[in-house]
Amino acid sequence: MSVKIEAPAVEMQDVSFSYDGRAVLEDVDVYIPRGDFTGIVGPNGGGKTTLLKLMLGLLRPDRGQVRVLGRPPHEVSRRIGYVPQSFSYNRRLPITVGDVVMMGRLAVDRNLGPRTAHLRERAREALEQVSVSELIDRRFGDTSAGQQQRVLIARALATDPEILMLDEPTASLDAAAEGEIYDLLRELNERMTVVLITHDLGFVSGVVQSVLCVNRRVRRHPTSEMGQISGELLEELYGRELRLVRHDRNGGGGCCE
């Protein structure tokens, strides 16, 4: 890596967004440096997904400026790997796991006409990273929720992203599968910036480097400051921390330093 000054992964200045006249986010300032592992937490309906979609360029702010990798997000969306929350798709659509992952190569590789062997190889590589390459020819709709989540992560990885953004990737998983996904994300964080919405505060304290608390307004806490957050949150953290330890095989840091 050269020493030249790089634009931060994400920078939002004075951003507001409303939906049908209802303010969802107000006066939001966000700074996420490259290589960071950011957790986004907050109550349901507090604007977590909206915040992420603003970063992804899928929504445009009413006011303020969003910069991702120093550019407007819709210009760099191909450099972002996006893992949506378990989303509704046409379950009768015949599509294999390999087909889904190959979508990650759209607008990168040749993508007119039928798929090539090269594309399939790329899909297999991405699936290997999330250790489900044996599913490549399985029908996507026939796989379990946990497998689908891995496939969607593989699809995001197939884009060779500089930033990985995930919306509650473990929402439909059991504790064991959840732990595996978190281990994987920690590993990926060595290569790329990771931004993740989660409801699991225990995980937040254990793995991420900074936390964005989103409830119409956004506050950023490096995890080293977590001790200063209200006792109520800490209690919540503590309660979840026990659960985290159980499936956290790497040991890793505790809640606070």
């Binding site: 992804l56 360029g57 899928l58 969306s77 191909r78 972002i80 996006y82 949506p84 989303f87 798709y89 046409n90 659509l93 599509i95 087909d99 889904v100 979508m103 990650g104 759209l106 607008a107 699809r155 884009t159």
Partner: peptide
């Protein structure tokens, strides 16, 4: 295929 399966992702891929 991309717009049929996941419109949002397709959009992010520049389609």
């Amino acid at each position: 295929l991309a717009i049929s399966f996941d419109e949002e992702f397709a959009r992010m891929r520049g389609i």
